[in-house]
Amino acid sequence: MICKNCNNTLRTDYSFCPNCGAKVIRNRITAKSLTFDFFERYFNLDNTLFKTLWHMIIKPQDVCGGYISGLRKKYLNPVSILAISLTVSGLIMFLMKKFAWEHIDFSNIGYAQTSSGASGTEKIMSKTMEYSSFVYFLYIPIIAFASFVAFNYKKYNFAEHVVSAIYTLTSFSLITAIYAIITLLINPQLYMSTAMIYIVFMIVFCIYVSYKNSENNLKSLFWRIPLFLLIVMIGYIGTSVLTVAILFLTGELSPQDFVPKN
């Protein structure tokens, strides 16, 4: 028997290839096998999504530091958890547009008001949501750079901080997904009104993970946290300006959207 992945010769009783580690597949793909493979990959006891998320809460240094040091089997890898997070974010955006949007009073969203009133706010938020995945990716290097500058006691390089940032942002997104889904279905206005609070908690979680990964002493937090916040704030403003600029360049927004109504 030949391994389909690396062409190594296998014994007929092998379940995995000793050369590349790939699972030996003998049966055709069915709906049952696809379901089993999905749950085995993400929800089994040895390598679970839930374990990764839970350990990101209680000991994130083991998840991030473990992957950086070469640990590959205990937790989900950054690419896998990023893919799951984007999928869940897509579900939330779908619920937002299909079920919650018409129940939101945009005139009561104080942090996003424009001079044109609720209609301008609604249009800006609607168009911005279309670029949500792009914005999500931009936050990764921002958090990574802030951590690299403010929390780098272990001398991780920038790419290693990117790994930690992916784990941090995706974990927070998945942990809060249940709240987002329930709130969108029950009280969409509350979801929109608490968006800024969500961002505050996200930044606090980023600081917590960066601190746990770095093992800096507590006294140094008095200058490390403000430095981290300053970099994140600059990055957040820059991302917002870039998003609006793209919307103007693509014609999604126009100056008329900001002109006050008579």
Rank of each mutant, 00 (worst) to 15 (best):
A195T: 14
F106K: 02
V162P: 09
N216Q: 09
I237M: 01
T170Y: 05
K261Y: 05
I225C: 07
L53S: 11
V241H: 01
F158R: 00
G235F: 02
D46Y: 04
N213F: 07
Y42R: 10
F258V: 00
A22H: 07
F228G: 05
M202Q: 06
L10T: 03
S116F: 05
G120V: 05
C64F: 06
F145D: 14
C20M: 07
I81Q: 15
T250F: 15
E215I: 04
Y67K: 09
L184Y: 06
V79D: 00
N44V: 02
H161N: 10
M125A: 12
S115I: 08
D37W: 04
V79H: 03
K4N: 15
Y191I: 06
L249S: 15
L34F: 03
M56W: 09
F248Y: 14
L249C: 12
A165C: 09
E40H: 05
E215A: 12
P260S: 10
S80P: 07
Q113P: 02
Y111W: 15
I25K: 06
F222M: 10
S126K: 11
K74L: 15
H55K: 13
H55Q: 14
Y236L: 04
S119W: 00
C17V: 06
M56K: 12
M196H: 13
V63T: 09
A118E: 11
I166W: 09
Y139Q: 11
G65A: 04
Q256H: 07
A180Y: 11
K4T: 10
I225G: 00
Y131I: 08
C64L: 12
T30N: 03
F16K: 11
Q256K: 15
F228T: 03
K98Q: 06
S171F: 07
M125K: 07
S210G: 00
R224T: 02
F145N: 13
I124P: 10
S116W: 08
T170I: 06
